[in-house]
Write a protein that binds this DNA or RNA. Structure first.
Lengths: 204, 204
DNA sequence: GTCTATAAGGCGATAGAC
DNA sequence: GTCTATCGCCTTATAGAC
């Protein structure tokens, strides 16, 4: 067996462990996730994990890190499809679609992150904080730009708007699997709601 | 010491334990919450908790149960203030305000419930399922009634609307404490957003 | 009602064989 | 790379003193 093959096998196993850890973490929480169970789900022994990771904390750190990176990559991809200088409505729709695709397609990672945020040792999620801040800034700037362009209704607090939208999107990880609704449908619906609301306006 | 006083003391201690448990549970999750720590936070020993509760599961069950009951009571209170046959906009605003007051004022209980839903032994949260269903029905009927009255914009899926609104509201438990925003302000903002959206419509 | 002491079991982590 | 074996620690829960 060559060195390259050996390295490859190690990398594959690493990913298997990360995926298994994300799944367990999303279902049972940090303290309810046992290395024995992670290992068992991929037919390994608990002790063997230590060949790939230095500690349980280090493993969790990588899961949370991958979680935020998956989201950023997919949102960027969706937004890039729009080309140069997209209008606000197109941009918002693409960003919402990207965020939802990311968190619902990789629900194990997202739920691992959401459910365990603040319940994992501080050092662990501090590690990914810079990435989270950068992603948050993308959304902040999206709405700031829209305000400058004058397409935001007066009286709307874009800070609270962003938090409300994040809540709607992220909450979908909780009910999506049982809903039978498609990601596209949810994205379309949420974009429409946050743009135009649910109320039939009386035009005067 | 009379019997009444003794009973009173027991009831007071029970509440102290429940509050302490909710706080620990919201911060560390079910498996990361240790009876020793709950007890220590109210200057007791772990073994003493068993005078008040039969097991850790029984204690958690009561916390989750109290969580949903707190919300239902406060929402009902806010809605009742409106009197007979309120219009949709007033009703929605009151319900949103009630829900937010409840989950933010009793954030320990709400976060304990949200963060641990699905990560606690099934038997524990099955116990409160009927209460949760009843509360969900209140919101379902609120939007169904609005549709019948014809005040919902055509094309809006009220099922997805309800889930989006729940997401926005419940997510606030995560950022509220650090935000410096008042509950009233958040309620006003979310009601306005879900009714009218953020986009400045071009009227033709 | 609360304490101390302890039983029974499970966890993360390490060492060394293979 | 993965296994087996094991150490030390900490958990829930119980028993009995006070």
């Amino acid at each position: 067996m060559t060195l390259i093959q050996a390295t490859k096998k190690s990398a594959v196993t690493r990913q298997l462990i990360l995926d298994a850890a994300a799944k367990m973490l999303s279902r049972h929480g940090y303290h309810g996730t046992y290395l024995k169970d992670i290992a068992a789900s991929i037919n390994m022994q608990a002790g063997s994990l230590y060949y790939h990771f230095n500690s349980k904390e280090a493993l969790m750190q990588e899961v949370l890190n991958k979680s935020i990176q998956l989201i950023r990559d997919i949102v960027e991809e969706e937004v890039d499809k729009l080309g140069h200088k997209p209008d606000f409505v197109s941009l918002l729709k693409a960003a919402i679609r990207g965020h939802l695709i990311a968190i619902l397609r990789h629900a194990d990672y997202t739920l691992a992150s959401i459910r365990n945020y603040g319940q994992i040792p501080k050092s662990v999620h501090d590690f990914a904080q810079a990435d989270r801040d950068a992603y948050e800034n993308f959304w902040r700037e999206l709405f700031e730009q829209a305000e400058k362009e004058g397409v935001i209704r007066s009286g709307v607090n874009t800070h609270l708007l962003r938090l409300a939208l994040f809540g709607s999107m992220n909450w979908a990880t909780i009910w999506y699997a049982d809903s039978g609704t498609s990601v596209e449908e949810i994205a379309e619906s949420q974009a429409d709601l946050f743009l135009h609301g649910c109320y039939k306006e009386e035009r005067d």
